[in-house]
Design a protein around this nucleic acid. Structure first.
Length: 888
RNA sequence: GCGGAAGUGGUGAAAUGGCAAACACACCAGCCUUAGGAGCUGGCGCCCAAAAGGCUUGCGGGUUCAAGUCCCGCCUUCCGCACCA
């Protein structure tokens, strides 16, 4: 009975043994240099934030990537499978506040803890290329890139309305605001504030980011759609409505423009600035200022996608924050009071996240504007459904052909004038608003009778000729605000000199080091501003006294290019060697959560395109194939502390071992679907691994001694029948698992297939024990089983590979090849249907042709009973699949 | 409102248009035992006492010799976007 005990699967002992061995062999998971003759494969999982604790989502993410990496190693690829730490960010500052631990210390300790967890899980990462974003040898290159962007006008500063998270006490990018709340603090409402901020001109790449989505056919369609919507390209027309006081306006023109140069109006130039194709921010002022003939004082520029309806415009609607409104208010305190109320209401709604839910209402300004096409005067209103952030902040209102305008006009009794009629009259076509573009113009002067599309072209042309408008493409995407009023981030490498103004830190003075000695407090504003040794410096130009920029960069900067650094992580002279990057890029397979579909993945694409234009990389997209795994949930809900349904990986590993935890996370659901964590399931996988352990160890001696099977099956001798059956199952399993790794990735069915194989082997245990299975077959079965398991259960596979006398590391063993001859069945069952209904099955030879199958089916007893007295009108045979008799 | 994904046993799930429920969990019965979170054998969609038989992939239509799978309409859930002019 001591035997029994010895023969017990003991994951704790096995895993400890191999963890130690692997730790002592850092070369095991190291990539070969870019000169390697092997084909390269770059598999990457998104790097974690070092919170100090891995969660089940991580286990799943890295189990998927590690399985792929291991299989590619076994297939002889030069695999790059790196790992790093997204190590800047707010939690470190919060921890500092709470425990008086410096952020750096806290972060590095967490990294050490998580690294241990990774090693305990047996993840095959090459730690030699580890990237830690909070260390100066990494973030100095953030600064370096920032300067390259600044030189090209891609990094710029402006005052703007920003999203402010009171919890983080910092600014958030639009992408980081979710339902009006902070992406890190789901219950914290984001406020609006005015601040001078640094931006990256991602809008300069809007068209390219959109167009190149078409190339990313290895990405989930869902992610591509989300990015397309986020970029939000819209084709239309900008048209100037003339102001009544046109003559008064001209006198103030120059003054007016200048006064607004850096204020709210600058916002306008930002969103328009780079909307045009090909303009990659060479001009720091957007082209809009050139494009606008006249100023806000003489004209109101509106954007519309339906210029064909312009003869139906019965009012002009301005956003409450529109500069012209401010101007109107200056002379009219009653109006100002009303507008302030409107802005306040909107602000509240925005903070509550239900901007779309508030009722439409507006305020008449008492002023009028002139439609440039027909000279008609229309009233100017201020409406709460017009957004300053989109388009020009002003619209023409066409109630007859727009739902929102219709609702608004009805409420306030504004004229509704129909200008589009359907091409063909149909029931209900008289109902307004009529939104369709499938129509012809009426009540539109010389344009009457034209199709909507043609009218749009003609009207655009007329606007261009007349100098009161132009065709225009606008994007919803806005520039990326990167300033954060935080300590624990990359310092922005800029200096303000009293004499020279804004001066970039020269390359040779990088990195701008984050000061170590700092007291983290809860006061608002940039913590760095309270560190005189940091702030006070000398101007690189004149040597005079100057002050450093005290904001730090958004941490999404770090993650926008980290995967390039992995290829050349120790480079002290450059972010990376372009030649090495050229070998490894693009990333063959990137794996992570879908929650990064927009933020991280659009910033990364932008960064790559900038690097491409800088001549640093040859690839214009970073990622060839993207895989988004599902969430790990428990009891139907996302794991969270507040719900008390968190399962700790450490706990699972302690109870069942890393192999079981990993394999369960692959077995319980296909990787792209959400996974419901059921502990009984982990126990089940653990029992399965125990069966594998027993089968292999019980018969390993026989396998170890033997030579490889050579040639034909009848050489195997002994119980050829059983051996043949098992080999067939084996080779079928190899074929299935191998195929799945090619891209389908239904690892859950692969694990199931391996379980079937093991079940069949277990059923033949008596024959194994009796020595009826020839040694070469036993050897092949056991070795191949272990190899098949190696990507999923690396510890057990390593142990059993050694037990079987395998040469070298199992990771270096060749992935088994399926022999189609062995995998083939001799005889198969064919379902027989009568009139599409299953009646029975018949056994036929595997290669049987249609005729043979038909004969077999008609000869079947059950079939004859049912066909008796009727006639068989038709026989459909799908060889190898089914036979269907149409009987009348 | 727009866009996307999904809906199959008690549960997680499987199924190139060709035997629905593989594999596992839970449960039931039995065996074994130095009683373990162990091992082995068998059962397990629903209806019917059982067999025979019938029914079954959210609902309703359709295409097809044949539909969980394709098409049309609807319902539900989840995700993303949302007054985007």
């Amino acid at each position: 009975m001591a035997d029994e005990k010895e023969n017990r699967y003991d994951p704790a002992a096995i895993e400890q043994k191999w963890q130690e061995r692997w730790a002592a062999d850092p070369k095991l998971y190291a990539a070969e240099p870019a000169t390697s003759s092997k084909p390269k494969y770059y598999v990457l999982e998104m790097l974690p934030y070092p919170s100090g604790q891995l969660h089940m989502g991580h286990v799943r993410n890295y189990a998927i990537g590690d399985a792929l990496a291991r299989q590619m190693w076994m297939r002889g690829y030069n695999v790059l499978h790196p790992m790093g730490w997204d190590a800047f960010g707010l939690p470190a500052e919060n921890a500092a506040l709470k425990n008086h631990t410096p952020p750096r210390e806290w972060t590095l300790r967490n990294i050490a803890d998580m690294k241990r967890q990774f090693e305990r899980l047996g993840m095959g990462f090459d730690w030699a290329t580890e990237v830690t974003t909070c260390l100066p040898d990494y973030y100095r290159w953030n600064q370096w890139f920032f300067l390259r962007m600044y030189e090209r006008g891609l990094a710029y500063r402006k005052k703007s309305k920003v999203n402010w998270c009171p919890e983080c006490a910092t600014v958030l990018a639009n992408e980081q605001v979710i339902d009006g709340c902070c992406w890190r603090h789901e219950d914290t409402k984001v406020e609006q504030r005015d601040l001078v901020q640094w931006f990256f001109r991602i809008t300069a790449y809007a068209q390219e980011l959109l167009d190149d989505l078409d190339k990313l056919d290895g990405w989930p369609e869902k992610v591509r759609t989300m990015q397309r919507n986020w970029i939000g390209r819209s084709e239309g027309t900008e048209v100037d409505f003339f102001l009544e006081e046109i003559n008064q306006g001209i006198g103030n023109r120059e003054q007016g423009t200048e006064r607004q140069g850096s204020g709210i109006r600058d916002q306008g130039s930002e969103k328009q600035g780079t909307g045009e194709q090909g303009n990659k921010g060479a001009e720091k002022q957007g082209p809009r200022d050139q494009g606008t003939r006249g100023t806000a004082k003489t004209r109101i520029r509106v954007f519309t996608t339906r210029v064909d309806t312009i003869f139906g415009a019965t009012s002009v609607q301005l956003a409450p924050e529109h500069p012209l409104v401010t101007e109107f208010c200056a002379a009219d305190s009653a109006l100002k009071h009303q507008i302030d109320g409107l802005i306040e209401e909107q602000r509240k709604a925005r903070e509550a996240g239900d901007l779309g839910a508030i009722e439409k209402h507006g305020i008449p300004t008492g002023k009028f504007a002139i439609n440039p096409y027909n000279g008609q005067e229309v009233p100017i209103w201020v409406a709460n459904y017009v957004l300053m952030e989109y388009g020009t902040g002003a619209i023409m209102s066409v109630p007859a052909h727009d739902e929102r305008d219709f609702e608004f006009a009805n409420k306030y009794g504004i004229e509704i004038r129909r200008v589009i009629k359907p091409v063909e009259e149909f029931e209900g076509c008289e109902t307004l608003p009529f939104i369709s573009e499938d129509g012809v113009l009426v009540n539109s002067g010389e344009y009457d009778g034209m199709s909507c599309a043609e009218a749009q072209r003609r009207l655009q042309k007329a606007a261009e000729t007349g100098g009161f408008g132009e065709a225009k493409v606008i994007f919803r995407l806005k520039d990326w605000g990167v300033s954060r009023q935080r300590y624990w981030g990359t310092p922005i490498p800029m200096i303000n000199c009293e004499r020279d103004g804004l001066v970039a830190v020269p390359d040779d003075q990088l990195p701008v080091l984050l000061p170590e000695k700092i007291e983290i407090t809860q006061q608002g504003g940039s913590p760095l501003a309270r560190v005189p040794e940091f702030v006070n410096t000398t101007c690189p130009k004149c040597g005079g006294p100057a002050k450093r920029e005290t904001d730090t960069m958004d941490t999404f900067v770090d993650s926008s290019w980290y995967f390039y650094r992995y290829t050349d992580a120790k480079n002290a002279k450059a972010p990376f060697d372009p030649a090495i990057v050229k070998y490894w890029f693009p990333i063959d397979q990137y794996i992570g959560g879908v929650e990064h579909a927009i933020l991280h993945l659009i910033y990364s694409r932008f960064w790559t395109k900038v690097m491409y234009d800088l001549g640093l990389v040859k690839n214009d997209e970073p990622v060839q194939r993207l895989f988004t795994q599902g969430m790990v949930i428990k009891d139907g809900a996302k794991m969270s502390k507040s719900k008390g349904n968190v399962v700790s990986p450490d706990d699972m590993v302690a109870r069942y071992g890393a192999d079981s935890a990993r394999m369960y996370s692959l077995f319980a659901a296909p990787p792209d679907r959400d996974l419901d964590w059921q502990e009984d399931g982990v126990a089940g996988v653990s029992r399965f691994l125990g069966r594998v352990w027993r089968i292999v160890t019980r018969h390993s001696e026989m396998a170890r001694g033997g030579a490889p099977r050579s040639g034909a099956l009848d050489e195997t001798g002994g119980n050829t029948n059983k051996g043949t059956q098992l080999l067939r199952k084996l080779h079928q399993t190899i074929a299935k698992v191998s195929l799945d790794f090619e891209g389908r990735w239904h690892f859950n069915t692969d694990v199931a297939a391996i379980m079937e194989l093991v079940n069949e082997m277990q059923a033949a245990d008596a024959q194994f024990a009796a020595g009826e299975i020839p040694a070469p077959v036993v050897r092949e079965l056991l070795r191949s089983l272990v190899l098949l398991l190696a990507p999923f259960a690396p510890f057990l596979a390593a142990e059993l590979w050694e037990e079987l006398g395998g040469e070298g590391a199992v990771l270096r063993a060749s992935w088994p090849k399926s022999d189609p001859g062995l995998a083939k069945e001799d005889e198969i069952e064919i379902p027989v249907q009568i009139n599409g209904k299953l009646v029975t099955v018949v056994r036929v030879a595997a290669g049987a042709d249609s005729k043979a199958i038909e004969v077999a089916a008609l000869a079947n007893e059950k079939v004859r009973e049912r066909v008796a007295g009727k006639s068989v009108a038709k026989v459909i045979v799908v060889p190898g699949r089914a036979v269907n008799l149409v009987v009348k």
